[in-house]
C-alpha cells in the first residue's frame, strides 16, 4: 500500500427513493489520507459508475464547511468524529487503514429521505419563514450607525448566526429535536436591538412551526451542541425557552 493510502470497509445506507425500502450495503474503497471524506465517496462513486452500478447519492456543494449541504452520520456522529467540522472538511487522516465506517443519513421524521443519504430539510426553511427574520423592507432602513450595538452583543449574535442549517443537531438528538437550530436563529436576532421588536411573536411562531414539523422535544442532553459543526451553544435554547414562556403566557389571545 503506497504512502498515505488506506483500505476501508464502508457500510452505507442505500435507499432508492422516499418510499422504497433501504438497507446498509458494504463497499470497499482505497482512500488517501489527504482526501476529504466526500472525496473518498467521490472515488467510490466513480468506481461504482464504471462498474455499471448507481453511485451513492449525497448532498454536497461548497465543500468548505459553510453551505450546510453535506449531511451524513459517520460512525454514529453527524459529520463524523471530528468536533466543529462538517463532513466535507473531515479529512481521511482521521481514519486509519482497515477501518470500518458506517455512513447513514440524518434520521428524523421531519427529514424524509429522498435517496440514499439525501434528505429533505425544507422543514428548516419553514421554521425560518414562520418568524426567523426582521420585518424590514428594502430601502426603508436608517443609517447603519444609528443602531449602536456593543461589540460583545454583536459577537454573541454572530456566534448564533454562524448556524449553517445543516441539521446535524437534529441528527444527533435522540429525540430528533430541532431546538438548537430554532434557538440559534432566535438567539441571533434576540441579541440585537433590531430583533427585539418582534421577539415575542418570533418566539411563539418559531416554536409552533418547529413542533408542527414533527421534530421532537429538547431533553437537555446537549448532543446537538457537541455535534454542531459551528459549535453553537445550547445557551440559545435557554434563551428561547425563556422568551417563549414570556411571550406565550403574556399573549393576548
Amino acid at each position: 500500500m503506497s504512502q498515505g493510502n488506506m483500505r476501508l470497509k464502508l457500510h452505507i445506507w442505500r435507499q432508492k427513493g422516499a418510499s422504497a425500502p433501504g438497507a446498509m450495503k458494504t463497499y470497499e474503497v482505497t482512500a488517501n489520507e489527504h482526501m476529504s471524506f466526500l472525496e473518498m465517496l467521490d472515488v467510490l462513486n466513480q468506481e461504482l459508475i464504471e462498474k455499471g452500478e448507481e453511485p451513492v447519492a449525497f448532498d454536497h456543494d461548497c465543500r468548505e464547511g459553510i453551505c450546510g449541504s453535506c449531511n451524513m452520520v459517520i460512525n454514529g456522529h453527524p459529520h463524523g468524529p471530528q468536533r466543529g467540522t462538517t463532513a466535507c472538511q473531515l479529512h481521511m487522516r482521521t481514519f486509519k487503514d482497515g477501518d470500518e465506517i458506517f455512513v447513514e443519513p440524518w434520521r428524523a421524521r421531519a427529514f424524509p429521505i429522498i435517496k440514499d443519504l439525501v434528505v429533505d430539510r425544507t422543514a428548516f426553511d419553514r421554521i425560518i419563514a414562520s418568524g426567523g427574520y426582521v420585518s424590514v423592507n428594502s430601502g426603508s432602513a436608517p443609517d447603519a450607525n444609528e443602531i449602536l450595538i456593543g461589540r460583545d452583543d454583536a459577537e454573541e449574535a454572530f456566534e448564533y448566526a454562524a448556524c449553517i442549517g445543516c441539521g446535524a443537531c437534529v441528527a444527533a438528538c435522540k429525540n430528533a429535536s430541532a431546538m438548537l437550530f430554532t434557538a440559534a436563529k432566535f438567539a441571533h436576532l434576540e441579541k440585537l436591538p433590531q430583533g427585539q421588536v418582534e421577539s415575542d411573536r418570533r418566539a411563539v411562531e418559531m416554536v409552533m412551526q418547529h413542533d408542527a414539523e414533527g421534530f421532537g422535544a429538547c431533553t437537555n442532553q446537549y448532543e446537538c451542541e457537541a455535534a454542531c459543526p459551528k459549535e453553537i451553544s445550547v445557551t440559545s435554547i435557554a434563551m428561547l425557552n425563556r422568551a417563549y414562556r414570556r411571550a406565550a403566557l403574556s399573549s393576548k389571545s
Binding site: V136, G139, A141, A144, R151, L192
Partner: peptide, 22 residues
C-alpha cells in the same frame, strides 16, 4: 451605502467597535 443600512436593519451581525459603531 444603502446596502449596509439594509443589511444592518435585517440583523446582519457585522463586526463592531467597542463603542457600538461598525
Amino acid at each position: 451605502v444603502n446596502i449596509i443600512d439594509q443589511c444592518v436593519a435585517q440583523g446582519v451581525p457585522f463586526a463592531r467597535e467597542y463603542g457600538g459603531t461598525l
